[in-house]
């Protein structure tokens, strides 16, 4: 299954075609939970991307010495270890962001994207390919969170990355829980609509 263009394609598939949030619908909890502002979305995305790349790399390296039966528990331990590294680093160097994201940082462990990529990709590919896959998925996830966070912050708070565009109150509901669901709903609907239009055009 060696393809010559695979590295580049491997990276970009995670961003658009197989975007973990918009297309695969994985990792929805942090997607909805932390995206009340663009900065939070970016921070969460970066933390998850780090764990994805590192755990994909580590798993690809040790996959041959781990017996099949304990594969999942071993993967979980490896992922949890990298999550703890992120937790400690964020507490030390970005304490404010760490507080904002709170519970969602340790919960990267149970983010289906991470274990999903470990199972589906890293456990049967080389270390380099797995890293690229993790990076692509991580960037795709970050992109999704950033988009959601930016839209919600713009509508809900009339600000962009904390910079107030208009001195007035926004449509508050967008930074609250219902706004998260409805924004993601409309983004996915838009993506489906675009795809539908495209497929009609090609036929």
């Amino acid at each position: 299954m060696e393809q010559p263009i695979s590295l580049k394609e491997n990276f970009f598939k995670g961003i658009i075609k197989e975007n973990p949030v918009f297309v695969l619908l994985l990792g929805c909890c942090p997607t909805l939970g932390v995206t009340s502002s663009a900065v939070n979305g970016l921070g969460m995305g970066a933390a998850t991307a780090f764990v994805l790349v590192m755990s994909n790399l580590a798993i690809a390296l040790v996959k041959n010495v781990i017996p099949d039966k304990v594969r999942i528990p071993a993967f979980i331990v490896i992922i949890a270890a990298f999550v703890t590294v992120v937790q400690l680093l964020m507490a030390a160097y970005t304490p404010a962001l760490n507080e904002q994201l709170g519970l969602f940082i340790p919960l990267i462990v149970v983010n289906c994207i991470v274990l999903g990529r470990a199972e589906a990709f890293a456990s049967r590919n080389t270390a380099v390919a797995s890293m690229i896959d993790g990076l692509g998925m991580g960037v795709g996830f970050t992109f999704a969170l950033l988009l959601l966070g930016t839209i919600r912050e713009l509508l809900g708070n009339l600000s962009f990355f904390g910079y107030k565009l208009v001195e007035a109150d926004g449509i508050l509901i967008f930074v609250l829980a219902p706004g998260a669901f409805i924004t993601l709903g409309f983004i996915i609907a838009t993506m489906k609509w675009l795809k539908e239009r495209e497929s009609k055009r090609t036929h």
């Binding site: 509901i173 219902p178 669901f181 409805i182 709903g185 489906k192 609509w193 539908e196």
Partner: peptide
Amino acid sequence: PEYMQGIPAALITASILSMAFM
């Protein structure tokens, strides 16, 4: 409409449910 079926409709329903819980 086809593009609203499934997940988008579900998410918008969840939004209304969440509003009710507020």
